[in-house]
Design a protein around this nucleic acid. Structure first.
Length: 546
RNA sequence: GACCCUAUCAUCUAACGGUUAGGAUACGGCCCUCUCAAGGCCGGUACACGGGUUCAAAUCCCGUUAGGGUCGCCA
């Protein structure tokens, strides 16, 4: 390609490759240290899969005393959304995924390889595109989008592989004169990579997760610079991961078919490609069929969904770790007190199967465990934080009743052992504890059904006569037994089971009357503790409502 | 359609030629018990199918079927 052509393409001065190499020298890394990254696009969405691969990359880097950085892939200017950076940084930060280098929520760079935002690296990309042009490894293409659409349709119709390659790569063999004429005429253009691959040949690639892959060589002359002068993903990936010193790239499965292109790009640039590991995408069951969790169709694909529901951050992290390495749950059982980030992640043991169904049942179970092992104060703070964002009236109630609610949350909370596990997520808390508040308490006498009204009345009245707030639990229960006995309910479960018809019911039915009257529910935590917290006035009022 | 990948309980998975195919979640039962939860104990018709190779196959090979992914001036 003549200098005249190149000057028409890049009229403004650009740094030379040598200058760029000097500005961004290779990293000095300790033995075994790995450099990984998370590279989201600021599109205003944060996919759960992004947290998944982000966590994997972060663990691999930090576990090895390496570097984990954040790069913003904003080369598609059309899709950029305001506030996206804040969402990205918040999402990562919430789950403890900290970048050593990158961009903060205000767009400020930190770290030696800045800028970490691709749109600000235009000159770097262009310098190398110019270099490839000079070396004859790239060329300008003047085909309009409509022409390409037509071409693709023809290819589909005639059953040939779609794409810009071989005889379909019309601009590949344009003469210098033709190029010059087009350029001078101001015809819009893109820059394409001149592929040296042969689609009939296979290249063997070792994927860190999937193992050996036999991929066809890339023979498509992909666009490396778009009409707006910014690079496409593929080219930016090669440039950035080279200069930022990435050693390992763990990314979603959907990139597998691009591996050969990427390696080709690294070869053309004269650099060593990073090691790749491809993770299968999270799936969901839809109409009996598995499919990729999609932002468009599935609210639960977005990380915001988990915030709205109020899943504790640790629960999601543990669930994801569990998907990354199934051995996590064994480790957790053996190390119940350790922080999840102490778990040694092994990328060799990431499942290379088709893709896991995102399992909310399991997430819920993990979440219950996580919450059961938090203190009442911690739970309170987390619920309050959640409520501030998603349930302001509840937040107000919490703030006005901190001690009271903390006591409620402390019922049957025995951290480390046999702790109550009825809370799955913060969203559930309000309805869970509603009966502790008079304005939310709803009597439900229907739950009393098999027990006669006169018995109910008698039980309630007699209990109040006997109730003393200072009684210990045994004394409290002895009153219930006494009432049971008096009204023909069994107090001995064995006796009751042997001859159920001899009794009206048993002591649990008496307790049930009190429970239903006091809480409006037939299933609650320990009734004694509930009554202690509720206080005698509320109990009296509710028992005498009939 | 072409290409790549994958295939073990309902779900996530372990197994890397020799196991009564293991664990977790879910589910069911029993125990405990003032209900529920928790906890303890127990339980279930899982190696997609068909061919090979081998003394021996869930594990290796081939095919079938099924599922997933990719074929953009999106990443």
């Amino acid at each position: 390609m003549t200098p005249e052509i190149i000057n028409l393409i890049f009229p403004n001065p650009l740094p030379t490759p040598a200058e760029i190499e000097a500005k961004y020298p290779p990293r000095q890394l300790a033995e075994g240290a790995k450099v990984t990254r998370v590279a989201p696009s600021p599109t205003g969405d944060m996919h759960i899969g992004g947290i998944y691969t982000g966590l994997l990359n972060e663990r691999i880097a930090h576990q090895s005393n390496g570097i984990f950085y954040l790069r913003v892939e904003d080369t598609d200017q059309k899709r950029i959304k305001e506030g996206a950076m804040e969402l990205i940084c918040n999402s990562l930060g919430r789950y403890g995924i900290y970048a050593d280098e990158g961009v903060d929520k205000d767009g400020h760079d930190y770290g030696p390889y800045a800028p970490y935002t691709q749109s600000q690296r235009k000159e770097i990309y262009q310098a190398y595109i110019k270099d490839l042009l000079e070396k004859g490894l790239a060329y300008p293409c003047f085909c309009a989008a409509e022409d390409l659409d037509i071409m693709r349709k023809i290819q589909e119709k005639t059953g040939v592989r779609p794409g810009y390659y071989g005889k379909y790569a019309k601009c590949r063999n344009l003469s210098d004169d033709e190029i010059l004429a087009n350029l001078k005429a101001g015809k819009p253009f893109v820059i394409r990579f001149k592929s040296m691959g042969d689609n009939n040949k296979r290249m063997i690639v070792k994927d860190l997760i999937k193992g050996e892959l036999a991929l066809p060589e890339n023979d498509i002359d992909v666009i490396i610079m778009k009409g707006d002068g910014l690079p496409t993903y593929h080219f930016a990936h090669a440039i950035d991961d080279h200069f930022m010193g990435t050693t390992h790239v763990f990314r979603a499965d959907e990139w597998v078919s691009s591996i050969s292109l990427h390696i080709q790009l690294f070869v053309a640039l004269g650099w060593k490609a990073p090691k790749y590991g491809h993770v299968a995408p999270l799936q969901k069951l839809d109409d009996g069929k598995k499919r990729k969790l999609s932002k468009r169709h599935d609210p639960e694909a977005s990380i915001v969904y988990f915030w709205e529901k109020g899943y504790p951050e640790t629960a999601l992290v543990e669930y994801l770790l569990n998907l990354i390495n199934a051995s996590f749950e064994d480790w957790r059982r053996n190390n119940p007190d350790k922080n999840a980030f102490e778990f040694p992640v092994n990328f060799n043991k990431v499942s290379n199967a088709a893709g896991a169904l995102f399992d909310f049942v399991k997430l819920n179970s993990i979440s219950k465990d996580v919450i059961a092992n938090m203190s009442a104060d911690q739970v309170f703070d987390a619920v309050l934080k959640w409520a501030h964002d998603y349930n302001p009236t509840f937040a107000e109630r919490l703030e006005n009743n901190r001690d009271y609610v903390t006591k409620i949350l402390n019922i049957e909370r025995n951290i480390g052992k046999k702790s109550r596990k009825d809370l799955t997520k913060w969203e559930d808390v309000e309805s869970d504890i509603s009966y502790f508040f008079d304005d939310l308490y709803r009597p439900n006498s229907a739950l009393l059904s098999p027990i006669s009204e006169s018995d109910v009345r008698a039980i309630a009245n007699e209990f109040i006569a006997l109730y003393n707030e200072t009684d210990d639990k045994d004394t409290w229960f002895s009153h219930i037994k006494a009432i049971a006995e008096k009204h023909g309910f069994a107090t001995d479960m064995k006796a009751y089971k042997e001859n159920p018809t001899a009794f009206k019911g048993n002591v649990s039915d008496v307790a049930k009357v009190l429970r239903v009257l006091v809480t409006g529910r037939d299933k609650t935590p320990d009734l004694y503790q509930i009554m202690q917290i509720l206080g005698i006035d509320r109990i009296k009022k509710r028992l005498l409502m009939l």
